Computed example of a mutant assay.
Amino acid sequence: MLSSTTKRIPVALWIWYRGGNFRGFQRQPEGPTVQAVLEEALASVGVPATIMPSGRTDRGVHARMQVVSVRLEPGDSAEAMEKRLPARLPPDLGLCAVRRPGSFHAQWSASGKGYRYRLRLGGTPDAAWAPYALDVASEPLLQGARAVTPERLEALLGAAVGTRDFIAFHEKSSPQKPRTLESATLHALGGGLYEARLSGDGFARYQVRYLVGSALKAAAGLLPEEAWKAALETGAAMEGFKAPAHGLVLWEVRYPPGVDPFTAGERLHPPGLPLEPPFL
C-alpha cells in the first residue's frame, strides 16, 4: 500500500454552507461543525483526510465560497470526487466544485477575501431573510437610537478603507499587524434590505462584525464619531458593537492568476450554489 502523502492527489474543494446549524467551522468536542461533517462525508467516500480551509468561520456565519485543500488517494480524481461527494452532504452544506490545482494551499495561497453583511434598515420584514439578516430596528443594543440612514452608514464604513492596524476591531487572539481594507460599500437589495460589502487582503477574527456593528452604532448616534475615528486612526479602544453572526457571509476567497483553481465563469455563476437566501 502507498502510504506517502507525496503520492496522494491534491485537490481544492469549493464548498458553501449555511452556518445556523453548525457550531462554527473548526472541529470541536461539542456539536456539529463544518469541518467534522465534511471530513466524515469525505471518509464515507474513501477519502480519510484532514481538510485545510482558507480560514475559519465562527458559529452562525455562512459561506458562499469556502475553499479547502485535501489530498485524494492514489488512483482517485477530482472529477470522480465531484460526482460522489454531494450525496453524502447534509442540506446546509454543499459542494460547488472540485479542481486539481498546481502548487496550491487553500489558506496560504489566498490573496484576499470578500465578505457581505446583510441588514434591514426599513421596510416589511421578510421571513425568508429573517435568519440571514440583522433587523436593525429590533436589535436590543440599538434600541432608542435615531434611525440609521444608508448614506450615513456607508460614509462611516468608507472611512475604514485603507491599510491600518485594526486592533480596535478584532479579537486580541488574532495577530496584531497592518491589514488592508480595499473597499467597504453599502448596496440596496430592495424592500429595506441592504448588504455591506467588504473586501481586503485578510481579516482578523470578528473584524467584519465589529466594523459593521460599530459603524451601525455610530450611525445610530450611540457611539461618538470621534471614538470611531480614533479607533481607526490610532487603535484606541472603544465601546463597539459586534454585529450578530447570522448576517455575515464569507462571499469569496481570491487567489492570484495562475494559482486560482476556479474560472471567472465559475466565480460569477457558482455551479450548484442555492439561489435562495443567504446567497443571491
Rank of each mutant, 00 (worst) to 15 (best):
A12N: 02
D76I: 01
F25C: 04
I167A: 06
K7R: 07
R118W: 13
P140K: 11
V37I: 11
A137W: 14
T149P: 10
L250Q: 01
G20M: 08
D165W: 05
H170D: 06
D126K: 07
G213A: 05
E276M: 00
L268V: 08
D201Y: 03
R100E: 15
A159M: 12
L42Y: 09
T5I: 02
L38N: 05
R116M: 10
F169S: 07
S174F: 09
P277M: 01
G272F: 07
F262S: 01
V136H: 11
A230L: 15
P277A: 01
E233N: 14
E82C: 01
L250A: 05
G247V: 00
S111M: 13
L157H: 09
A43N: 07
L250E: 00
L248T: 01
E226C: 14
M52F: 10
V34L: 06
V148Q: 09
A133N: 12
Y210S: 12
T33F: 00
D126A: 13
A188C: 07
R56K: 12
L89D: 12
R18F: 02
L250V: 01
Q26P: 05
Q143N: 08
L93C: 10
L119N: 02
S214D: 12
A245K: 01
P150C: 03
N21F: 01
A110D: 14
G46A: 03
A106S: 14
A160F: 08
R116K: 10
L93R: 10
D135R: 08
G235Y: 11
R152C: 11
H187K: 05
R8F: 14
V161H: 04
E233W: 10
P90K: 11
F104P: 05
E195N: 07
P125W: 08
D76M: 05
R59L: 10
L153A: 05
M81V: 04
F104C: 14
D76S: 03
P261S: 03
A137Q: 15
Q143G: 09
E171V: 07
V70R: 02
H105F: 13
A155C: 00
A155F: 00
I15Y: 05
F241E: 06
P90V: 14
P257F: 00
H246G: 04
G247L: 01
L232I: 15
R27I: 02
S138F: 08
Q26E: 11
E82A: 14
A230F: 14
G112C: 14
K177I: 07
V161W: 03
L198Y: 00
Y206S: 13
R254Q: 13
L216H: 14
R116G: 09
V47I: 10
T5Y: 06
E233G: 07
W108M: 15
P74Q: 02
